[in-house]
Design a protein around this nucleic acid. Structure first.
Length: 272
DNA sequence: CGTGGCTCCTGTTAGC
DNA sequence: TGCTAACAGGAGCCAC
């Protein structure tokens, strides 16, 4: 479900409240994608220092160790002091003296992993090799992005989704940024003109930033940790609009399958 | 190494 | 209305 904007909106919705909190108890539900990596009781007594994000991972720094949280396809976090009883899809529940952090994840593609810190082998394995942070101007450099495109013959849509060049662009935003920059999703990355590559670079920055500003996209059930839904779907130009008229030229939006994922695009506006 | 296919799991929706 | 199949916002792993 969540792409970078939803993860960032989630982070902002509870980071300040949970900082300094002391962990009182941890309860696990059904198993998630990976085991927690330690007995839940081991977390008790630790203090939350800050909540960061790398790609679609939330990194919760503790005075001893680091919790990594991934929302997968259907995950969402809540942080509140008055949460209802655990539901069948609540699989991680961390009670603190400031409130309870709870992961709700019906499909269980998400993860909560306890590591010793950023240099923990498990953390390294998941974080090493991630691409540039699109909302970090000093990290997301045009020169590096352009060089990355030039170095790949992969179709641009799956390359964006892979996170190897730039992180956080998921299935919705991949379609949206390619439409905005008028690039065919099937175009080989190294065949994209410098002009279009520049538009793509700008679109990634602008569209993701706008989505964060708007509170993320809620297609089904996304909400941030304070329970607020997103509003960005009102802005979607192509995603989910198969057969409907293109907002730019009026021709029908087409649907394409790339690597088992749906891609929406305008065949008229997005050539090569 | 880069690339593509499969897989995990549950819920919702489209089609008959 | 009920059944079934397809599909859903991710990404690690394996085989080429």
């Amino acid at each position: 479900m969540p792409e970078l904007p939803e993860v960032e909106v989630t982070r902002r919705s509870f980071a300040l409240q949970i900082e300094g909190a002391r962990i009182l108890a941890v309860t696990m539900g059904k198993p998630l994608r990976w085991a927690l990596g330690c007995v839940p009781d081991k977390l008790v007594g630790s203090q939350v220092q800050q909540v960061r994000r790398r790609g679609k991972y939330l990194l919760i720094d503790l005075d001893r160790g680091m919790l990594m949280v991934h929302l997968g396809m259907s995950g969402s976090l809540r942080f509140a002091s008055d949460l209802p009883a655990l539901g069948v899809h609540d699989h991680f529940d961390m009670r603190t003296d400031r409130g309870t952090l709870r992961l709700h994840d019906p499909r269980r593609f998400g993860a909560v992993i306890a590591t010793s810190g950023e240099n923990d082998p498990v953390a390294r394995k998941l974080l090493d090799g991630l691409g540039m942070e699109p909302l970090d101007a000093s990290h997301f450099r045009w020169e590096a992005f352009h060089a990355g495109l030039q170095a790949s013959r992969s179709p641009i849509k799956p390359l964006l989704l892979s996170g190897k060049l730039v992180v956080g662009v998921g299935n919705i935003y991949a379609s949206e940024v390619l439409f905005a920059s008028r690039i065919a999703p099937t175009a080989a990355a190294n065949s994209i003109s410098t002009l279009k590559a520049k538009r793509l670079y700008q679109s990634i920055r602008e569209i993701l930033a706008l989505a964060v500003e708007r509170g993320g996209t809620t297609l089904r059930d996304f909400s941030s940790a304070d329970g607020m839904p997103g509003h960005f779907q009102l802005q979607a130009q192509v995603y989910g609009r198969n057969g409907l008229p293109c907002m730019r030229c009026g021709n029908a939006i087409a649907l394409l399958r790339q690597g088992q994922r749906s891609t929406y695009y305008c065949p008229h506006c997005q050539k090569t």
